[in-house]
Measured scan of single mutants.
Amino acid sequence: NSLAEAKVLANRELDKYGVSDYYKNLINNAKTVEGVKALIDEILA
């Protein structure tokens, strides 16, 4: 998966839960796919 794909999928996942734009910005600023995954795990914990 590319970083861009990971960000799109992460933001879709956040949308399902009604997560605020603050967290979407964190996702969009992530530098690695692993970073995106770690943020998602933390946000949805």
Rank of each mutant, 00 (worst) to 15 (best):
N1Y: 09
N1A: 14
S2K: 13
S2I: 09
S2M: 11
S2W: 09
L3A: 01
L3W: 00
A4Q: 12
A4S: 11
E5N: 10
E5G: 07
E5Y: 06
E5L: 12
A6Y: 09
A6N: 04
A6S: 09
A6Q: 05
K7T: 02
K7M: 05
K7W: 01
V8T: 14
V8K: 14
L9H: 14
A10Y: 03
A10L: 03
A10H: 01
N11K: 10
N11G: 08
R12M: 15
R12A: 15
E13D: 05
L14P: 00
D15V: 06
D15P: 02
D15W: 03
K16N: 08
K16A: 07
K16E: 05
K16T: 06
K16S: 07
Y17H: 13
Y17K: 07
Y17R: 11
G18K: 08
G18C: 09
G18V: 06
G18D: 08
V19E: 05
V19I: 14
S20L: 06
S20P: 11
D21Q: 08
Y22N: 05
Y22C: 13
Y23T: 04
Y23W: 13
Y23L: 07
K24F: 06
L26I: 07
I27R: 00
I27A: 01
I27Q: 00
N28A: 12
N28W: 10
N29R: 09
A30W: 00
A30G: 02
A30Y: 01
A30H: 02
K31T: 14
K31F: 10
K31Q: 15
K31C: 06
T32R: 02
T32D: 06
V33F: 04
E34Q: 10
E34C: 08
G35W: 07
G35I: 14
G35Q: 15
V36G: 00
V36M: 03
K37G: 04
K37C: 06
K37F: 12
K37A: 09
A38M: 11
A38N: 06
A38E: 07
L39N: 01
L39W: 03
L39E: 01
I40Q: 06
D41S: 12
D41L: 13
D41V: 14
E42N: 09
I43F: 13
L44D: 02
L44I: 11
L44F: 08
L44W: 07
A45W: 10
A45E: 07
